[in-house]
Design a protein around this nucleic acid. Structure first.
Length: 549
DNA sequence: GTTAGGG
DNA sequence: CCCTAAC
């Protein structure tokens, strides 16, 4: 065995351009083949190119570009600009010590994202080393704590955006401008006002003139789409009075309806310009060729995007779980520039276990992470380190679902299942460019059968088990095609191989103790029948197949 | 195309 | 669920 030095590259957050969704590959199953074709190479180069663009945009997306409207604060007299600069520098110092989960940090300070990436760059292996030594979790937890502190201490920078000409959302905010900076001692007045803010975030009278860094932004989606205000296309458009005023003045929880009473509900328009692939770590021999590196990265990217996913919504770094809440109630519509709004990809089938999704996957405890690691591939991808172990090289994908990943799965994909309601909540623009929103598995577009994806995990229901048992009892084990025809003829997603596999696991399940079983419990009565049928047909089969010596 | 069995 | 040898 030859020991090879391996090179580690950290790819933190590629910006993946929005690509029209294509139909599922003809093959529909299987794995990613090793030989990439031109489409794959092109796709990779496109990824790299976009990633490069993103990095280069660091300067233009620098938060320095923030323009201060009212300075100093009319309430407490503090010089906002200076405070902001201090804060920014302080944050930069902190950030440099913690490369981990920059997405998380950026969920709170979105415009810092580029700096993180720039600092880390490719080949910065300090964080990698941590992970390789199994300390990634600690890093994450520490980062989690940091972020919390940062947020609690008011280091969250909330940049108010421009609205169209109809309203001035910042109008009354200036009076209550609060500056909570944990590097400095905020005045008592400021503390008081900080406390009065909903969700504990601070609002500053700032206008961000630089829209470039916004991954999710409010924009004019279609030139034909009711541009009545004449506002620049990149500017957020809220046609109604911003509820943030009432929220602040009432110093209570946001009740959007109050702010909107007497006026028609307005649409919140979102345009998601690009989607970010979660962090990838590539571990590849130094003897590997550039071409194989490209392919390796491509495989990692396609793998991570390959699973069926649905969209998670993050607001202020926190998951919004209540699908029935309105944008107003959650405060999304008040967040003019969507700085607090993030999208993330989650497995379509959320585990039933209540401990599994208690909080953000990145911050699972070790035990729960272990537990999750036994779940499906898609889950593993989301929860922790997933090994796409292929012959030549090992790809470690560190997937952190937390942060303003700004990833969204295909709108169509999302709506085909039971997620329409969730989806509708965010895509409230009928004239939205469907092509632009359809994102996920972009290789489907190529129609290349080599880009088949792993099927999603679809656990058998008790009813299905019942049907399977009954069919096997009637027919016998081994006649899986007949079993399929008899009991699962209309279940397109159940192949006879699936049925055979399920029977295998059923037999195994029946033989182990109930404590060792996982998933939806199968009634003992069914398991007994499984064992009985299995024994019976085994004997029966033996009788006929035993060759006379 | 099916089946069996390892991964 | 995937992969594949064997039929």
């Amino acid at each position: 065995m030859v020991l090879q030095k391996r090179l580690n590259y950290g790819f933190n957050g590629y910006q993946v351009p929005v690509i029209p969704r294509a139909s599922r590959s003809a093959r529909g199953r299987g794995t990613i083949k090793k030989k990439p074709d031109n489409n794959q190479i092109q796709a990779f180069e496109m990824l790299a190119s976009v990633a490069g663009n993103f990095l280069q945009k660091n300067e233009s997306s620098d938060p320095k570009n923030v323009v201060f409207v009212e300075d100093p604060c009319s309430f407490c007299g503090t010089n906002i600009k200076d405070k902001y600069e201090d804060e920014r520098r302080s944050f930069m110092r902190d950030s440099f010590d913690h490369g981990a989960c920059s997405e998380i940090a950026s969920a709170f300070v979105p415009s810092m994202q580029g700096k993180h990436d720039n600092h880390r760059g490719m080949g910065d292996s300090s964080f990698l080393d941590n992970h390789l030594e199994g300390q990634g979790q600690n890093v994450l937890e520490r980062e989690d704590e940091r972020i919390k502190r940062r947020s609690v201490n008011g280091k969250t920078i909330h940049i108010k955006g421009c609205s169209d000409g109809l309203i001035e959302p910042c109008h009354k905010v200036s009076k209550h401008c609060s500056l909570a900076n944990n590097a400095e001692k905020p005045s008592l007045e400021c503390r008081k006002h900080l406390d009065s803010f909903p969700n504990g975030f601070t609002s500053r009278k700032l206008v961000n003139r630089d829209d470039d860094e916004n991954l999710v932004r409010c924009t004019q989606l279609n030139s034909k789409n009711n541009n009545t205000s004449g506002a620049p296309p990149d500017m957020p458009k809220l046609k109604d009075a911003s509820p943030i005023m009432s929220a602040i003045e009432e110093s209570s929880s946001i009740v959007g309806q109050q702010a909107h009473s007497g006026s028609r509900a307005c649409n919140v328009k979102l345009s998601i310009k690009s989607f970010k692939v979660p962090e990838l770590f590539i571990d590849i021999p130094e003897t590997a060729t550039i071409g194989s590196l490209k392919r390796t990265v491509m495989e990692a990217v396609t793998t991570i995007l390959g699973d069926e996913l649905h969209v998670g919504i993050l607001l202020q770094g926190k998951k919004v779980r209540d699908d029935s809440k309105t944008l107003i109630q959650t405060g999304i519509s008040q967040d003019d520039k969507r700085h607090r709004l993030g999208f993330m990809l989650e497995p379509r089938h959320t585990p039933i276990s209540p401990t599994s999704y208690n909080d953000d996957p990145c911050f699972l405890t070790t035990s729960s992470r272990k537990k999750l690691s036994r779940q499906s591939t898609s889950l593993t991808l989301q929860q922790g380190t997933y090994n796409v172990s292929k012959e030549r090289s090992m790809i470690k994908i560190e997937s952190c679902a937390k942060g303003d990943l700004n990833i969204v799965s295909s709108l169509e994909d999302t709506s085909t299942n039971n997620n329409m309601s969730k989806c509708r909540a965010l895509v409230a623009v009928p004239a939205i460019n469907m092509e632009a929103l359809a994102v996920v598995p972009f290789w489907r577009k190529s129609g290349n059968p080599d880009f088949a994806q792993r099927r999603i995990r679809r656990p058998f229901s008790v009813l299905e088990v019942e049907a399977l048992v009954q069919a096997v009892e009637k027919l016998r084990t081994g006649r899986w095609r007949d079993v399929k025809q008899r009991a699962f003829d209309h279940a397109k997603h159940r192949t006879y191989v699936d049925l055979k596999d399920k029977w295998k696991t059923l037999v195994h399940t029946a033989r182990i103790s109930p404590q060792q079983r996982r998933g939806e419990p199968v009634p003992q009565e069914l398991l007994d029948r499984v064992l009985a049928a299995h024994a019976y047909w085994s004997q029966h089969q033996c009788k006929h197949q035993l060759k006379p010596l």
